[in-house]
Structure formats: C-alpha cells, structure tokens
C-alpha cells in the first residue's frame, strides 16, 4: 500500500553521526506508522525499503562524507508495511565551529512522474545487485549496480538526474 503526505508538509528527521535517530517530527511518525519511542535511538534503516538500491545509499554516504548536500528520490517502508516516496534533501548538520555533528533530512512529497522514473531506474539497479555472487549484499552486485547507475545517468550526475525530474515535474 502506498501512503502519501501533504504538499505543505515536510517530513523531518535527524540522526547522529552513526545514523541513529535523534529526532523525528510528527509527519515522520505518522507517515512511518512509528511512535517517537520506537524511533529515537534506532538506526535509520528501520524505514529502509527493500526496493531501494544500495548504490543510492552509497552515493548518499559518499556525498555526506564530503560535507555536501544530496537530493534523492527515496522510497521508505512504514512499520505497518505501507511505503511512501519522498524527495529527500539530506544535509550534514554543523556546529558553530563547522564540525559535523549529525545529519538532517527534510523530505517533500514528490511528483508522480518523477517517482515513476526513479522507480524504473531503481528496479534495474536492484536487479543488478541481486544477480552478483552473494546476492543483494555482495560487493560484486554493488559494483555492477554502481556501474549501471552511471551508465543510465548517461554523463549526468545523480544530482542533475534528480533535478531534471524535479524541475520538469513542477515544484
């Protein structure tokens, strides 16, 4: 079952440097069908959907390690088995001295057209990841998926791919 949320709403969560939730707003809790107690202190992957390719998460962490922002289309898994698509804006949180103290994600409701395009790409990447030796967790599968991702982007960066979908589908 697919769940959506309001155009005017933003799903907000924060994690520490290890990826453990330190904050989740009420839109997050409602959409993920979680309580605050079930969320804070838990690892971020409690909402990870099996349709999400590992290559996209690799890109996410590579980008955050460079202290840069990332926009990504992500499908998340709610505790009740529903799923919901978001356009996530993930950024490092800095303290006054410029040190990264955690990560922050603001998620907006995506356009259907963008979701369809992202879902088609991710299905291909997941298939590539599962074909490798060791199944979906193997390094070979991730390498194949990573290579395929860049082939499919055709010279664009993932960032440009996301913005092509976002600017084309209305803001």
């Amino acid at each position: 079952m697919e769940r959506t949320f309001g155009d005017d709403e933003i799903i907000v969560s924060k994690t520490d440097l290890r990826g453990l939730f330190t904050y989740a707003n009420d839109v997050f809790l409602r959409t993920s069908a979680l309580t605050e107690d079930e969320t804070v202190g838990q690892p971020h992957n409690i909402i990870r959907h099996p349709d999400m390719p590992r290559a996209v998460f690799k890109l996410l962490w590579d980008t955050l390690k460079r202290r840069e922002e990332l926009f990504a289309y992500v499908v998340n898994l709610a505790a009740d088995g529903a799923h919901y698509w978001v356009l996530a804006h993930v950024t490092p949180s800095f303290d006054g001295a410029g040190t990264v103290v955690g990560y922050h994600s603001s998620r907006r409701r995506p356009e259907r057209r963008a979701v369809d395009a992202a879902a088609a790409l991710y299905a291909e990447l997941r298939a590539a990841e599962q074909r490798g030796p060791g199944g979906s967790g193997g390094q070979a599968g991730l390498d194949a998926s990573w290579k395929l991702l860049h082939e499919r982007l055709g010279g664009r960066s993932y960032d440009e791919f996301v913005w092509d979908l976002t600017n084309g589908g209305g803001r």
Binding site: F71, R109, R171
Partner: peptide, 13 residues
Amino acid sequence: GRFHRRFLTRGML
C-alpha cells in the same frame, strides 16, 4: 553555476 539546483518552495508557507 549549478543553476538546476533550485530552492524547493514545496513545504514552505
């Protein structure tokens, strides 16, 4: 010069 990166107004009131 990355002009494709816009300020998303969705969710902002």
